[in-house]
């Protein structure tokens, strides 16, 4: 197994762990943490393909990771602010108890 396949395997494992956490945890903060893990797995893929790809001098995957980190920072800030606002409104951060919009 070469390093690129190793990176892809690690990143798919990390994605699955994040997905499992986002689907199974009840705390909204940990759901957000699972989403962050999935984003990081995608970033690891970008770095791996940039490093072992045919044209690393174009820096495409690298710059994409930089922008992705910035977007993830904004997403985490807004998401945590939403969680705090929902907690203030509903007095809980348990996603299975927030059923106001349940049809």
């Amino acid at each position: 197994m070469n390093p690129l396949a190793g990176c892809l395997l690690v990143s798919s494992l990390l994605f699955s762990v994040g997905l499992a956490g986002a689907l199974t945890r009840r705390s909204a903060i940990l759901v957000l943490a699972g989403i962050e893990l999935m984003l990081n797995a995608a970033n690891l893929n970008f770095i791996a393909f940039w490093r072992f790809g045919p044209h690393p001098e174009f820096l495409t995957g690298f710059v994409f990771v930089i922008f992705s980190i910035a977007v993830a920072a904004a997403e985490a800030a807004v998401g945590l602010a939403l969680i705090v606002a929902i907690y203030r409104h509903a007095q809980t951060s348990d996603v299975s108890e927030i059923t106001e919009m349940k049809g």
């Binding site: 494992l13 699955s16 997905l19 499992a20 689907l23 199974t24 299975s96």
Partner: peptide, 17 residues
């Protein structure tokens, strides 16, 4: 700390992996 649909979520994550 885990939702009642936890088994289903874990199965979905395993399938994705």
């Amino acid at each position: 700390s885990f939702s009642p649909a936890g088994i289903g979520g874990a199965v979905i994550a395993l399938a994705v992996f």
